[in-house]
Write a protein that binds this DNA or RNA. Structure first.
Lengths: 221, 221
DNA sequence: ACTCGATTCAAACATATGTTTAATGAACAA
DNA sequence: TTGTTCATTAAACATATGTTTGAATCGAGT
């Protein structure tokens, strides 16, 4: 068995573990679990090839550790800081802006988004954890905002569909960025466009929700 | 060099090529270019391992041939059949339904959607071809509908953003299906839900577009 | 029946990659 | 000092996978 202690309990090691996690985060996010190689990761971390197996058992152990190691670096970096008395319209705007920042972030919090995007297409055993710890609270937060904006008589299913409609618009610019950059080479759809995109998505979604609210919860079946 | 003739010109071969293309389409769509193995493909096609290299040069040649071999099997299977006099609202509805069918299709036309989804996350050299031959006409078709629904004074950029907003909702249920099935295990979001999803997306998008049209083209900057 | 090109086949080859192993070093306690 | 434990290292190992090779097989034309 490998050194399981140091993976969970922080110890005064020589930092190899930390460097390994850091390097693995970048590599996994950029190349995906399968395409990323332990040699690549170890080289970037300045560690020996056997370091991964020694510290994390195997490649999958390292992957899981990476996901566990970032208990959500995003929330503190791009907080959707609305108070309890804020109007739901402003909450939505803040939420969308925050999510777009997260989506376009290239640094550490960006890992989660990129890795999640890959897990969607090519799920690994880590997906269950990711869904429960990250996706579900994220969905629920937006769902509560949507519920406020819809009529109180709105079905849970209507709330859910609208939530997904809003969410999909935000993540699309990340998912489809390789296609968009080829379709519209002049428009970059990069981090600089966040304000413009956020404004559009917010207006688009608010308009739809307002209309639905007037219709008493929209397509309640 | 390999037998390049038979890859382009149809000849009375013993069908190995055709079976190879068929098998490769499924495997590539399911596992992605990288994870798919030529042994897997050859086994499914009932061909020898060397068949791929003989008929297509290498694995990438087979991949390209697969993409080239389906000049769009979808259009004939799920036509968005609206005439020239149709109201734009109905065009949008038909377009969304058609796209959802395409997205959820498991058979041959479904290849394109699945492969495109993978190319978005992990682009190969085939992406440029895919974008020009498939994504661009598809985007433009929806853009023309959006343009009709928006005010005539709408910016091209506004049209583009709204088009992407609509498109994103449709593809999201495919992209995120692994996450959605875990988030809401009771709701399947499978082929059976196409009518419901289409109705929601159409209503959501139409409501937003109507509002934008009243505002004279929405967020024209 | 024979020939020749195209096709198929089993086997080998080369490489990439995750993993293991045995040796070495470093820090520290007895 | 000596011995023990943890960490690191280079090398080897096992496997998977794309590709190549040379022989065998098939089919059409003469």
């Amino acid at each position: 068995m490998f050194n399981e202690q140091s993976a969970t309990v922080s110890e005064p090691n020589s930092g190899t573990e930390k460097r390994l996690l850091e390097a693995a985060g970048e590599i996994f996010a950029e190349y995906g679990y399968r395409a990323a190689t332990v040699r690549q990761i170890c080289e970037k971390a300045g560690a020996n090839i056997a370091a991964v197996n020694y510290h994390f058992g195997d490649k999958e152990g390292l992957y899981m550790a990476v996901l566990r190691s970032v208990p959500d670096a995003h929330a503190e970096k791009y907080p959707a800081d609305y108070g309890p008395g804020t109007a739901p319209e402003q909450k939505l705007s803040a939420y969308i802006q925050s999510l777009l920042h997260r989506v376009f972030d290239e640094g550490r919090p960006g890992w989660h988004t990129k890795i999640m995007a890959r897990e969607m297409i090519e799920p690994t055993r880590a997906l269950d954890t990711l869904v429960e710890e990250i996706a579900r609270p994220f969905h629920q937060e937006l769902a509560s905002i949507t519920r406020e904006l819809l009529d109180s008589a709105a079905t849970e299913e209507a709330v859910r569909l609208c939530t997904l409609s809003i969410l999909s618009q935000c993540v699309y610019y990340h998912h489809a960025r390789s296609v968009l950059s080829r379709l519209y080479p002049k428009r970059k759809y990069g981090p600089n466009d966040i304000p413009r995109l956020a404004e559009h998505i917010t207006a688009f979604s608010l308009a739809a929700l307002k209309e639905f609210a007037q219709q008493n919860g929209g397509i309640s079946e």
